[in-house]
């Protein structure tokens, strides 16, 4: 069954169709909620609130975009409301930008840890642009910041990630070498 068919049934308040729609998008939306909030408890709340809003205002969905994109916007906005009080964006000067070199290999677990370790502002921009594919303009509109601020936040988020990954990589090598000596 397509999303459109499911949506039609959801508009008739058919619970099974609602559950099916939930199941289709719950993982992607929950992951997004967690990456934005960095807190599973908040992610639970975000997911619940976002789906309830989606079902309540489903009649306003004009199908100009996919249902997933429409729902993702709701999740992002709901998540940002939860973390907004902890975010403080600052314009950071970028006169002499250093190059960020991602190397030839990246450990995914380290990257996940690095993302979780980012300050909320950096993390929000990085998640929205690099993971979810929003533009700087869209990100600026969602977060209420300028495009320039979005760009500078992303640049410094990447620098911080690279730095984190470098330190984690060196520590892992050290631990590895230590653990191999012990064995």
């Amino acid at each position: 069954m397509t999303d459109t068919q499911l949506i039609e049934q959801c508009l008739n308040h058919e619970r099974l169709a609602q559950k099916e729609l939930y199941n289709r998008y719950k993982t992607a939306m929950y992951t997004l909620a967690y990456r934005m909030t960095n807190d599973f408890g908040l992610a639970d709340e975000v997911l619940q609130d976002a789906f309830l809003q989606a079902f309540r205002y489903l009649h306003t969905f004009r199908q100009d975009s996919t249902f997933g994109a429409w729902l993702k916007t709701i999740v992002v906005r709901t998540a940002y409301k939860k973390i907004k009080s902890t975010v403080h964006f600052e314009d950071i000067e970028q006169h002499q930008q250093e190059q960020v070199d991602w190397g030839n290999h990246m450990d995914t677990d380290y990257l996940e840890q690095a993302i979780q370790a980012l300050p909320t502002g950096y993390r929000s921009v990085f998640v929205l642009i690099e993971i979810e594919g929003y533009t700087h303009q869209e990100t600026g509109e969602i977060l209420g910041i300028s495009t320039g601020t979005s760009k500078s936040q992303l640049y410094h988020a990447k620098k911080r990630l690279r730095s984190f990954l470098n330190s984690r990589g060196q520590r892992a090598k050290g631990e590895g070498s230590i653990s191999s000596n012990e064995s």
């Binding site: 559950k19 939930y22 719950k26 993982t27 992607a28 929950y30 992951t31 967690y34 599973f40 992610a43 639970d44 997911l47 619940q48 930008q97 250093e98 190059q99 960020v100 070199d101 991602w102 190397g103 030839n104 290999h105 990246m106 450990d107 995914t108 990257l111 996940e112 993302i115 690099e130 993971i131 640049y155 990447k158």
Partner: peptide
């Protein structure tokens, strides 16, 4: 400002996904 960005993009596609608890539904 970035070198080897494809490495980052590939890593992002491999990032883990999280399942919400059943209680949410």
């Amino acid at each position: 400002t970035e070198l080897n960005k494809n490495i980052l993009k590939q890593a992002i596609t491999r990032l883990p996904e999280y399942q919400p608890p059943n209680e949410i539904w």
